[in-house]
């Protein structure tokens, strides 16, 4: 059983010795913090951009279109570094907050397209019914169209969130130690490649799995008005 001993030794060296698991735990914390804040702000940005794109006002359309084009046309690492080293260069906020802002700007572009499609998917008769009752455009949007759109887009939004969690693996570029970077540090310190990298993958996988299960639960709650 030498391979098992080997495995145990390497595992010990990589994760237990010198309290290296603390590094990994902190990394998990950073990943979760950045992803949560970025998702939250990304949805807000996505909403605003979607409304710009759906607006009848030409200047707003243009803002929405340029935003989506620029974000989709450039790599997220580049965006992260521009936000961190250029836009927020002289702002001394916590690193993770600035990183989350960068990711939310990126995610917002994708979320806006999801939301736009979701709003368009709601039958126009719903808007007409709301307006014919005397509700104004904003009230109709908020009470009638958006709740239905949210239900339709929830799976796509969940997917975007999952992508976002994995995207955050590049925060090492601006000096944050997330799961990926923690794995990297352990690799450098131990001269082991297999264990830290597979460990990193397993941690991401478990995190995403938990997230998927959580999203599925919320979605089934949202579907309660579909029962026949």
């Amino acid at each position: 059983m030498t391979w098992l001993d080997d495995f145990q030794n390497t595992f010990y060296k990589c994760f237990i010795k010198d309290d290296r698991y603390m590094l990994m735990l902190d990394g998990i914390g950073v990943t979760i913090k950045v992803a949560l804040l970025a998702a939250f702000m990304g949805i807000i940005i996505g909403f605003l951009i979607a409304l710009c794109n759906l607006s009848r006002k030409k200047p707003l359309n243009l803002i929405g279109k340029v935003y989506t084009d620029v974000i989709r046309g450039t790599p997220s690492v580049t965006q992260l570094m521009i936000v961190y080293f250029v836009i927020f260069a002289s702002v001394h906020w916590e690193k993770w907050i600035i990183a989350a802002i960068a990711f939310s700007i990126n995610s917002g572009a994708y979320v806006s397209e999801i939301i736009r499609a979701g709003i368009l998917s709601v039958d126009n008769g719903q808007t007409e019914a709301g307006r014919s009752l005397g509700l104004n455009a904003k009230q109709t949007m908020i009470s009638i169209v958006i709740p239905q759109a949210m239900k339709n887009i929830f799976p796509a939004l969940g997917n975007e969130f999952i992508t976002l969690v994995k995207e955050t693996a590049i925060v090492g570029y601006v000096g944050l130690v997330d799961i990926q970077k923690a794995g990297d540090f352990i690799k450098s310190a131990t001269y082991e490649a297999f264990m830290p990298l597979i460990g990193t993958a397993v941690i991401y996988f478990v995190l995403i799995k938990l997230l998927t299960l959580g999203l599925a639960k919320v979605e089934s709650g949202l579907r309660k008005s579909d029962v026949r």
Binding site: Q126, E128, G130, R131, S132, G134, I144, Q148, K151, S225
Partner: peptide
Amino acid sequence: VNKVRQKMGMVFQHFNLFPHLT
């Protein structure tokens, strides 16, 4: 327009009930 519409109810061919509400 909204004030005017509050005085005029409308019933549609396809009902247009709000499916997310009871």
